[in-house]
């Protein structure tokens, strides 16, 4: 089973993720802030990390930048999720292996994005 880490501080959004990924072929771990996200990533290798961008404390884009700066996590596929359109975060594309998921999204869109990222990584 693929390992999925979701970093999202909005409890309602967490519910949506749980609901959409229920019964799919993933092991899903959800944490509520960037600092915890980093801790998890250091503990275990994840196949995909989904990051919310606007979070209290360490924001998703900062976490992403940190990952890309560290040789160990340079390749971890990342999906950034935000209610803002991806134009705002286009500059991060240069850091590689990242795609954007605009909120709102439905189950199909989420699974589609995850599959794409998993394949893209191969």
């Amino acid at each position: 089973m693929k390992e999925l880490l979701i970093v999202e501080d909005d409890l309602e959004m967490q519910e949506f993720y749980k609901d959409m990924l229920q019964g799919e072929q993933f092991t899903v771990t959800i944490v509520s802030n960037g600092e915890e996200g980093i801790k998890k990533i250091k503990e275990k290798k994840y196949d995909i990390v989904i990051l919310d961008i606007l979070m209290e404390g360490m924001t998703g884009d900062r976490l992403f930048a940190l990952l890309r700066r560290d040789i160990r996590y340079k390749e971890v596929p990342v999906i950034m999720a935000s209610a803002l359109d991806e134009k705002t975060y286009r500059c991060f594309q240069a850091l590689g292996n990242v795609s954007f998921l605009e909120k709102p999204f439905n189950k199909e869109k989420l699974l589609g994005e995850i599959t794409k990222r998993l394949e893209g990584h191969k």
Binding site: D10, E12, F16, A83, L84, P104, F105
Partner: peptide
């Protein structure tokens, strides 16, 4: 946008 997105979801 955030609350609207969540309502849609």
């Amino acid at each position: 946008k955030t609350p609207v997105a969540k309502i849609e979801m």
